[in-house]
Lab assay of single mutants.
Amino acid sequence: CHSECLGNCSQPDDPTKCVACRNFYLDGRCVETCPPPYYHFQDWRCVNFSFCQDLHHKCKNSRRQGCHQYVIHNNKCIPECPSGYTMNSSNLLCTPCLGPCPKVCHLLEGEKTIDSVTSAQELRGCTVINGSLIINIRGGNNLAAELEANLGLIEEISGYLKIRRSYALVSLSFFRKLRLIRGETLEIGNYSFYALDNQNLRQLWDWSKHNLTITQGKLFFHYNPKLCLSEIHKMEEVSGTKGRQERNDIALKTNGDQASCENELLKFSYIRTSFDKILLRWEPYWPPDFRDLLGFMLFYKEAPYQNVTEFDGQDACGSNSWTVVDIDPPLRSNDPKSQNHPGWLMRGLKPWTQYAIFVKTLVTFSDERRTYGAKSDIIYVQTDATNPSVPLDPISVSNSSSQIILKWKPPSDPNGNITHYLVFWERQAEDSELFELDYCLKGLKLPSRTWSPPFESEDSQKHNQSEYEDSAGECCSCPKTDSQILKELEESSFRKTFEDYLHNVVFVPRKT
């Protein structure tokens, strides 16, 4: 048989008469490798580009789960590009990614509803959504962080984005990388972005840091009482949809009607710091009717980097990364020049730590249904340095008659930039024990000054392991946590139920 035959053949030295091919099969003959313009397919066939392209389009058009959109890589027609490569849609070739590779997620039936953290986790790592997304989240724990972890990498949506009755959302900033909504599939009414009845939605994105392009379709905003109209108009300008909307697409009466839409800028007039305090004062603000001013709200939190936005980490279910302080308005003076500047002394802060701070007014709604208010920009203030805590785990070892090696770990709280350490030492008198000992005694162990690591005695271990207080009263049991108490109650309830079950099964009433 021919060298490319495997198993047997019907005619000697003829690659077209093989029972099976050793390498690849091409047009009725066995070959060692697939010549151009053919590609290896499933490690035994040679196919042309049209064959591989037909497989790709067949799966793409069917949208069946589990099928493969075949691509070409290293002269092979394979189910998908290997790690580190992405497909070129024009020629199906796998090309190296520039940075992290995109991950295209194809949605069944063309859309997916995100109504819980669990459903959001199914899209973790996706960068391109081939379909439409509907966000409908009523509640949950730590929602802002969970949504950002699972949806934060999405850069492109081919269909539309719909935010509907998501009472738990305060902001859409968890879509931190969303840059493009194509609108290839539109919501009824030709809408590519749809926001309806979101009672706590206050911000779409921080438009000073976020760009969003909507290729096709219109915007729809109705019944978002805490979303200011200025935020919607800003989205029109940034996304390129200005002029597409009709009169009733953006409701003037049901958007922002319960919001404090600040239209003035508060400026800080005085800032002073110490290692654990920050004193702030800002310019006074009074609405047209000074009785509408209820006070100020001061927001602050630790910020290692200057990239904080107002609604980071917030949701309507209680999660809030900001510390909020309510401040009463100052006494009002008739003389504008003698107006008191409101302020606040922030206490209990960490030394040498940068804080993000902003302040906003708290006002009631005027009778004319106009909203007044003022808010400052987010500023960054760093507390002063102070003395560091003591170095940890000092170790001293003498390696000769004239040297001592000293080692330690950095302090747990540096409280500033540590530039150097101060080492103090003092000579001590020799131990009298060394002169009084009889060095001729056998088995004498000389006193040693070398360091030995501390260890816990058996008594201390027994005390720590004991669940009861000892007789001397030195140790006591740790208080039980809520989960331990709940577990004990469940076990007790189970024992009672099981005992009742045994009584009912074992003891049967005697027939009379």
Rank of each mutant, 00 (worst) to 15 (best):
W344C: 09
N248I: 11
L280N: 00
V325P: 00
I134H: 00
V104P: 03
Q354S: 06
P351A: 09
G110W: 07
E146H: 14
Y223N: 02
G159L: 01
I154T: 07
S400M: 10
G189Q: 00
Y191N: 07
L279P: 01
E156V: 15
A195S: 12
E368M: 02
E148S: 14
Y223A: 06
T364D: 14
D206H: 06
N263A: 05
Q339A: 08
Q245E: 13
G318P: 12
I181G: 05
N248G: 08
D197L: 11
D115K: 15
G183H: 03
V128N: 15
K226G: 02
W352C: 13
Q258S: 09
K267Y: 15
D292W: 03
I134V: 14
I163C: 11
S398L: 03
G110K: 05
N255C: 10
V325L: 14
R291Q: 05
C105T: 02
S402L: 13
S400Y: 14
C228S: 01
D249G: 11
K209N: 15
R281Y: 09
L229V: 10
R138D: 03
L293W: 01
L349P: 01
L349R: 05
R165T: 05
T254A: 06
I181H: 00
N141R: 06
N150C: 03
I232P: 06
Q245P: 13
H210N: 07
L219W: 05
L178F: 09
I327K: 14
G131C: 01
Y305I: 14
S208F: 11
Y305E: 04
A251I: 12
E246C: 06
W205A: 08
R369P: 05
L406F: 15
S158G: 09
E368D: 09
K226N: 04
E156A: 05
D312Q: 03
S166D: 07
W207H: 10
N150L: 05
M297L: 12
V104C: 05
C261M: 02
N307F: 13
V128K: 06
K226P: 01
G313C: 08
P288Q: 13
M297Q: 09
N399A: 09
I214P: 03
F268R: 02
S166L: 05
T185D: 11
N387L: 08
G348P: 13
E148C: 08
E148T: 09
L227E: 03
N211A: 09
G110D: 12
K103M: 02
T215K: 06
S274Y: 13
M297I: 06
L186P: 10
S389N: 06
I232F: 08
D206V: 10
I157L: 05
P388H: 02
N130T: 07
E264G: 04
R138K: 01
G348F: 12
G189Y: 15
L201F: 13
A259K: 09
E148P: 09
F193G: 02
V238Y: 13
L349H: 00
F358D: 01
Y194T: 14
L349V: 05
G189F: 14
G140A: 13
D315M: 10
Y194G: 14
Q403K: 15
I137N: 07
I129C: 12
I134D: 04
Y270V: 14
W286V: 06
E148V: 05
R281F: 15
A120Y: 05
A149W: 14
L147K: 00
D367Y: 10
L349M: 08
E246S: 09
P288T: 08
V324W: 08
L153Q: 10
D276G: 15
K209E: 06
F174E: 01
S398I: 06
K242H: 14
N263F: 02
L204C: 06
A120L: 05
Y160F: 12
K162E: 04
I134L: 09
V238R: 14
R369Y: 15
Q121W: 05
L172N: 02
Q314V: 09
R124F: 05
I232S: 03
Q382M: 15
D292R: 02
L331T: 14
I188G: 08
F193Y: 10
E237P: 05
I357H: 01
A251L: 12
T241N: 13
N130A: 10
D326G: 14
N198R: 02
W207I: 14
G256P: 02
S319K: 09
K360Q: 00
I188S: 06
G295S: 03
L178P: 02
R247Q: 05
G189V: 14
A120V: 06
A168Y: 10
D384S: 06
S401I: 11
N255V: 05
S319R: 11
D206Y: 05
T353Y: 03
S173Y: 13
L345Q: 04
K209D: 03
T185W: 11
Y305K: 02
S338L: 14
R176P: 06
L252D: 10
N211Y: 04
Q199A: 08
S171Q: 11
A120Q: 06
S192G: 13
N141W: 11
T273C: 11
P329I: 05
N190Q: 15
S376N: 03
E109A: 12
F296Q: 00
K407V: 05
Y380E: 03
P388A: 06
T273P: 07
R244G: 09
V238S: 13
L108G: 08
Y194A: 14
D292T: 03
P329M: 05
I250D: 15
I404L: 03
E187T: 10
K218A: 07
W207M: 14
W286H: 01
